[in-house]
Simulated scan of single mutants.
Amino acid sequence: MWNLSEPWWELLLRGSLVYLVLFALLRFSGKRQAGQMTPFDLLLLLIISNAVQNAMIGQDTSVLGGLIVAGVLVAWNNLLGWLTSRHRRIEALLDGRPEVLVHNGRVFEDVLARNRMSLEELQSALRREGCFDLNDVGFAVLETNGAVSVKRRTSA
């Protein structure tokens, strides 16, 4: 139960490598909040977690091995959170930047495509904010956390 079948340093290395690679893959797969995940997104996350389990832990099935890898994952998460809160360049690299989706009723299709967002998803986000017509939108911004912020057009 407590005896490691893999060296502790290998568990650290495996956990770190898997965390960083998955972070990069998910970071560049687009911005989406957990509440906006499709069933396909959820399925992908579940399958990924199962697929990388052995890559992180190897042949070790001990409680201690699992705790070491869990500690490594939490440590990386905290370190990256700390770095992004203190360095704007690192924050921009890891979290990305907000992007304008709509300006004065004009949809930027290239921004939607780059963020793997469909026009239907955008319209749904706009409706949640009370904008049922694109012409009513002054700005719609895709935030780094996947939320869409909307500012209505002002009447001139």
Rank of each mutant, 00 (worst) to 15 (best):
F23I: 07
E99F: 04
G138M: 07
V69F: 07
A125T: 03
E6M: 07
R116F: 10
V63T: 12
F132L: 09
W82N: 09
D136Q: 13
R153K: 15
K151H: 15
W8P: 06
D60C: 02
K31N: 06
E121K: 04
L11D: 00
L67G: 06
N115P: 04
P98R: 04
E6C: 02
L20T: 11
M1P: 07
D133C: 10
Q33D: 04
G30Y: 04
N104M: 13
T144N: 02
L17R: 11
L44Y: 13
N135E: 13
R152Y: 09
G65Q: 01
M37D: 08
V148E: 01
I90D: 03
A24V: 15
N3M: 13
N54I: 15
P39D: 05
A147S: 11
L11C: 01
I90S: 07
D41E: 09
E129R: 11
G65P: 04
R153S: 12
D136I: 09
R14Y: 04
N77L: 14
V21G: 08
L93G: 06
E6D: 06
R106T: 14
D95R: 09
L46I: 15
T38R: 09
E109I: 11
N50T: 10
E129I: 08
L4K: 00
G58D: 01
R32F: 06
A140L: 06
I68M: 02
L122P: 04
A125E: 05
A55Q: 09
N115G: 03
T144P: 01
G58Y: 00
S62T: 03
R128M: 13
A147D: 12
M117E: 01
S5D: 10
D133H: 08
S124I: 15
S5M: 08
G66D: 01
G35N: 05
L122M: 10
L17P: 03
G35H: 04
L142H: 00
S124N: 14
G81V: 07
L122D: 02
R88T: 15
